[in-house]
Amino acid sequence: MIQHMNLVFQADGLSVGEGAFLLACCNHTDAKGYVIASMQQLADEAHMKMTAAKSNKQRLIQRGLLASSERYSPKNGARIADLYRVNLDLLASMKRARTDYGPTLVEELTFNVPRETPRSNPPSDSDPPQGRIPTHPRRIPTDPPSESDGGAGSDSDPLLLPSTTPSSLSPGSGDVDGSVDVPPDGEREDEASPEGQNPSEAELPQQRERTGQKAAGERVVAAYAEALGRPVLNGTRAKLERQAVELLAQGLPEAWLCDRAREMAPRGWSNLAQHAERCTAPLPSEVSSRSRPGLPEWCGECGQGTPAARLNPRFRTLGELGSGEKCPRCHPDLATLAGA
């Protein structure tokens, strides 16, 4: 009990070891001072080794401050936790005399109560509350008095210069009665839409094609991740998706690229463009059927060896992809003339 531990703190004539062991015992006492605890538990709570705990226990027993008794189980006779009792009366009689330890820090702290000073002018209803910045009332502009009203505008009235162009908010530019339709959100729509927001009809198919290629590129990356068996890192994902979109734009079919991605994953490859260029797998027959009728067979030497040149004659050039001179062996423009 905390009251019994306080008796140990106030007791005089205890050594450090005796006080620590007695505090461990008082941590488990009941109202009469009985303690049920093992010797190892008391030694641990007193922060001492077993030999020191036993030595301090014997000294407390000899001084009459502690009594102990071994206990055994009535069922099987096994040794159980010992029974101790602290002599609370003797411990209370060892209370040291009251000692003046001098002023404490709390006694030295004082507070100066501020004295209230009456305000010279009581606050009026027009004074703004404390903590707020006074704001001036909004001035609603009014039309300057006309000559028919009997006076001209004062010096404080704003000078409104006439506009050279008719305003959309001025009477006459809207309805007959001068009213102007304003959208519910309080903003007027601009006559010209922002750049890139309203694409022309010719740009819509190109945007749809780019959107479809991006979605197809994501499916190619998904095929790579499925064969890999784990999520793809962000850097590798962005690289594969970019290369897949470029290859799809060159005319390579999506299913063929998905198969190439599945081949790369187990080998740890991540360069789809290089693998597609070196791959000798045939293209699907359904893509060949969509090629231009009468397209000559690719010679395999032009277009830097890219498989896209099999279906797209634009890549059948002697320079870089889509540039340089047309291949005289397999380009449809030159091969047709040579055959004629």
Rank of each mutant, 00 (worst) to 15 (best):
V176H: 11
T165C: 01
T165M: 03
Q206L: 15
D181G: 04
S163L: 10
S163M: 04
P171I: 02
L204S: 02
P171S: 11
T165A: 04
V182I: 15
T164I: 07
Q207E: 14
P205R: 12
G186R: 09
A202F: 06
G172M: 04
L204T: 13
L204M: 14
E203W: 09
G178Q: 08
D175Y: 13
S170F: 04
S170K: 04
N198M: 05
S168V: 06
N198H: 07
G172L: 06
G178E: 06
S163R: 11
T164N: 08
D185W: 08
P184A: 14
Q207H: 15
T164V: 11
S167N: 05
P183N: 12
T165Y: 01
N198I: 05
E187N: 10
S170Y: 03
S163P: 00
T164M: 08
R188T: 06
L204H: 11
P171G: 03
S193M: 05
T164K: 10
G186C: 08
R188G: 03
D181F: 13
E201C: 01
N198C: 01
P166D: 09
G186H: 08
D181C: 02
D185T: 12
E195N: 01
S173L: 06
E201A: 14
V176S: 14
G172Y: 05
D190T: 04
P166F: 00
P166A: 14
S200Y: 00
E189M: 09
A202W: 02
G172K: 09
T165E: 13
E191Y: 08
E201G: 08
E191D: 12
A192N: 04
D190S: 10
G178T: 09
S167C: 04
S200L: 03
G172C: 04
D175P: 01
S163Q: 11
E203H: 10
G172P: 03
G186L: 04
G178M: 05
P194E: 07
D175A: 15
P184C: 03
Q207M: 15
E203K: 11
P184T: 13
S167F: 00
S179R: 15
V182K: 09
V180W: 04
E187D: 07
G186V: 07
E203I: 01
V180F: 01
P199N: 04
Q197G: 00
D181I: 11
L204D: 02
S170T: 04
P205M: 08
D175M: 12
T165I: 08
A202H: 09
L169E: 10
S200M: 00
V182A: 05
V180R: 15
S200W: 00
D175E: 13
L204V: 15
A202G: 08
G174T: 07
A202K: 06
S168A: 08
L169H: 07
S168D: 05
S163Y: 01
P183M: 03
S167Q: 05
P199S: 06
P183K: 09
G174R: 06
S179M: 12
E191T: 08
P166H: 06
E195Y: 06
D185A: 09
P166G: 03
E191P: 00
P194K: 01
Q197A: 11
D177M: 13
S170N: 05
P166L: 03
P166S: 11
E189I: 10
D177F: 11
G172Q: 07
S167A: 02
E203S: 13
G196F: 06
P171K: 11
D175L: 13
D181S: 13
T164R: 11
